[in-house]
Design a protein around this nucleic acid. Structure first.
Length: 821
DNA sequence: CAATTACTAACATGG
DNA sequence: TTAGTAATTG
């Protein structure tokens, strides 16, 4: 691969566009081509599109004037502010179709960046249905990371990597950091590797190299130590020929800055740039875009500040607010006509988001006002078990009434909520599709198998090597491994290489030395078979000869056979790829499997991954304080965190076309402990006229004394229309007390110093601190618990009580959930 | 070196 | 609760 200049126009090959033949691919020849009628239907329609009589062009018809403007304003920077459901994706895809049809560029000359894999896939699908097969593989349509990767692979040498470098996922990253922490003697009690991984990510999201790390940050764990670990970490990545996710962007930026000719070649290549979800871009992505857009400035960004939900990942809403400053002369088009939702849904969502400050105010409106449209439904349930069950029932009911499962989605705040739905739907035999969440490729056996493949393909991949040296156990334990690791570190070489040197010496005892030697021989044998064997066969050979499959066959535990199944499934899915390397690359970027798209199935996913999608019916479970808005968001980012959560709620509601059904539980188990939950404050922020508060669909009155309201807090306490009267639940009373004390203390707890009372933000309860100073109970006291019945307090640990229950045995519970008797 | 036991943090969110 | 780690023992 050429290292100078970077004129890799190879991917223009095979792009067969109606119109000018190849050869005129680069440069001036692509200026608006003169109309040449009859060269193909798309081209023919395009002719009409560029100039007069646009009505003829069917892909443009059906756009409203603003949308059409956004599609046709091809030259110069353009920002499209598009509210939820205003046809954002439609504008983007039609715009691409228009560029192609007008023959302004080849598919390979359009850069289209999305934020998530799903969005990229969706866009690809929609473009090909709009334009036809020729776009099938628009090479530069993808996520920031996948495009960064593609660029880096071509010019890896320029940033100190070999073109076949591997990509580390978060777990690999944490493993590596852990090692550095051990070497540097960082107190693992105070700083966890995971925490540092997040910080590292934050720096990278902001485009900071080790030497640019802010002075304050650099001093963590000791004088300049954090900076040093960052620098060492990067150096280690280089040695093991790997890049983490952040590097995919950061190294590309470095490449562009250090190699102006390469940058220039890309600037020339990308005649049109389109960016989806611009509000989610972080600084690194912004820099990346700006470098590329400095060429011909045909950049079109589409976004909605109200849907900015990736602040935690470094997204800068400022990017969207500053757009015309960054790209002088930018045109701004607003899309405010909503085509998706009923007016109940739309008004409710707008009402909610209006509570946020500092937004570019947009007013969404809709025409179709269906008088029969359903109100937003809000209902409480006893616990998550009931939540899952009733939603299951409602879905079955919808199904009986002829609704397709494909039109139904369950959107949760945190991925752990998805499992319960999965379990329930399996027993119901209800078809479901999980997106994101606990992913196939994150399972133990899959990661192990992948580590074997990685280590085979990429001898320098230390993390893969370390993962499997002693899996299955071969007697290569800590002691031997430490020697290898030390040598590798001292010589600054990958561990496999170090191991190779070590087995030639007497350093190791004979037994481990031989096993290690054998293992290395295994790897080189597998490596030699890379050419001769089909990659799926080789994968099986590796797993068999390494003893990995046998390990599971000998395993007596219940899930062993499932794991073997998964391994087979892994090899099966490998079949769809050309090579092992291609397969590994795919899964390192796209951790979710896109399978079974054709079946009719309910979608279960997080709110984050739901952005950009729409469904007739949307279930929104878990609207409880602490879960949604999530406690961590409030603790760590205060008001900004709360606003981001609210945007997330907005995103959730606006996914629904016809029915939005919000659920909250009265009790939820957190870390195995029962806690009473308070309804989400967002419920109060919905306009009553558009909300229908449903009766709980199954009664749980039998649990306690009559009229006990299972929910506390908010509208549903103070003027609760349906839970008759007295809130005698201790948990509720306690929550209420928390609330009041929080409000009166009125502090603006930004730094969480001290483990005191609840933090408030302008009178709102933001963080209910779990560490109550004193328990209201004493050891030996007789108590009543709604789920477990009567018992006696065995011990007290802050607000955690260990109770010896008369029926249920010994349990740990939270004090707010028991009641003195 | 491996198996057992005791302890503790984790349930954000994505590429 | 559970998964992961650290310490302890065979």
């Amino acid at each position: 691969m050429s290292t100078s200049g970077g004129t890799h126009d190879d991917d223009l090959d095979g792009w067969d566009l109606p119109g000018p033949g190849r050869g005129s691919a680069s440069g001036k020849a692509l200026e608006p081509a003169p109309p040449r009628p009859g060269t193909g239907s798309i081209a023919a329609r395009a002719m009409a599109a560029v100039r007069p009589a646009p009505e003829v062009v069917d892909y443009l018809s059906g756009l409203n004037p603003e949308q059409r403007d956004a599609v046709e304003s091809l030259d110069g920077p353009l920002l499209v502010l598009a509210g939820a459901g205003t046809g954002k994706t439609r504008v983007l895809t039609t715009r691409i179709a228009h560029i192609l049809a007008a023959r302004r560029a080849f598919p390979s000359q359009i850069l289209a960046v999305t934020f998530t894999n799903k969005a990229a896939r969706e866009m690809k699908d929609r473009i090909s249905s709009l334009v036809g097969e020729s776009v099938e593989g628009m090479p530069w349509l993808g996520t920031f990371h996948s495009i960064g990767l593609k660029i880096l692979r071509r010019h890896a040498e320029m940033v100190g990597l070999r073109p076949d470098f591997s990509i580390l996922d978060t777990d690999d990253q944490i493993c590596l950091i852990k090692q550095f922490f051990q070497v540097e003697g960082v107190d693992a009690k105070r700083w966890t590797p995971r925490w540092f991984a997040i910080k590292l990510d934050t720096w990278k999201n902001r485009g900071l190299l080790p030497e640019q790390v802010p002075v304050g940050d650099a001093e963590w764990f000791g004088p300049n130590k954090a900076r040093k670990i960052y620098a060492d970490y990067q150096e280690r990545l280089r040695v093991i020929n790997a890049a983490d996710f952040g590097d995919l962007l950061l190294l590309t930026i470095r490449l562009f800055r250090e190699q102006p000719e390469i940058l220039k070649s890309f600037q020339e290549r990308f005649r049109y740039m389109l960016v989806d979800e611009y509000q989610d871009t972080n600084i690194a992505q912004y820099l990346w875009l700006r470098l590329l857009a400095q060429g011909n400035k045909n950049i079109c960004c589409v976004g909605d500040d109200d849907q900015s939900i990736y602040g935690w990942r470094g997204a800068e809403v400022d990017n969207i607010l500053r757009f015309d400053h960054d790209f002088p002369g930018a045109e701004v088009i607003r899309l405010e006509r909503n085509y998706r939702s009923t007016s109940h849904i739309l008004v409710a969502a707008s009402h909610l988001i209006a509570k946020n400050e500092g937004r570019l105010s947009k007013t969404l409106f809709t025409d179709h006002d269906d008088p029969d449209a359903e109100l937003i439904s809000v209902a409480s349930v006893w616990d998550s078990e009931e939540e899952v069950r009733t939603i299951g029932e409602e879905i079955e009911d919808l199904q009986r009434h002829g609704h397709e499962l494909n039109d139904i989605a369950i959107l949760v705040r945190a991925s752990f909520q998805m499992r319960e739905f999965e379990d329930r739907f399996i027993t119901l035999g209800l078809n479901y599709r999980m997106i994101g969440g606990s992913r196939f490729y994150e399972r133990l056996e899959i990661r192990d198998a992948l580590a074997y493949f990685r280590a085979t393909l990429q001898p320098s991949d230390d993390l893969a090597f370390e993962r499997i040296v002693n899996t299955p156990m071969r007697g290569l334990g800590d002691a031997s491994l430490r020697q290898v690791r030390e040598l590798a570190r001292a010589q600054n070489i990958p561990m496999m290489q170090a191991a190779g040197m070590l087995v030639e010496t007497e350093e190791l005892r004979p037994k481990p030395r031989n096993t290690l030697k054998n293992l290395l021989m295994d790897f080189s044998r597998w490596r030699s078979q890379l050419e001769s064997q089909r990659h799926t066969d080789l994968a099986e050979i590796i797993l068999d000869e390494s003893g990995y499959t046998e390990m599971w066959r000998n395993d007596r535990s219940a899930d062993a056979s499932g794991r073997l199944e998964n391994l087979k499934e892994l090899i099966r899915s490998m079949d769809e790829f050309e090579s092992m390397a291609g397969f590994l690359e795919h899964i390192s970027l796209v951790m979710d499997r896109d399978s079974g798209d054709t079946d009719d199935a309910v979608s279960i996913m997080t709110l984050h991954s739901a952005k950009g999608l729409e469904f007739d019916t949307v279930f929104l479970p878990g609207w409880e304080e602490g879960l949604f808005p999530h406690q961590r968001a409030l603790d760590e980012s205060g008001r900004a965190g709360l606003e981001e959560e609210r945007r997330l709620a907005y995103v959730g509601i606006t996914r629904a076309k016809k029915r939005a059904r919000i659920r909250f539980t009265a009790n939820r188990r957190v870390h195995g402990m029962w806690q009473t939950s308070i309804p989400s404050r967002f419920l109060d922020e919905l306009p009553e006229e558009h909300v229908e508060v449903s009766e709980p669909s199954s009664s749980y009155g039998g649990y306690g004394t009559s009229g006990m309201g299972p929910y506390g807090g908010s509208r549903f306490d103070t003027r609760d229309p349906f839970a008759s009267g007295n809130h005698s639940t201790p948990g509720w009373q306690r929550a209420q007390r928390n609330r009041e004390s929080g409000a009166s203390s009125g502090g603006f707890g930004k730094s969480s110093r001290g483990r005191g009372g609840p933090k408030t933000i302008e009178g709102e309860l933001v963080a209910k601190s779990v560490t109550e100073t004193e328990s209201a109970y004493s050891v030996g006291e007789r108590i009543f618990h709604l789920k477990f019945g009567y018992g006696r307090v065995a011990s007290i640990d802050g607000n955690k009580l260990t109770i010896e229950f008369e029926k249920a045995g010994r349990k740990k519970v939270l004090d707010s959930f028991v009641e003195a008797v």
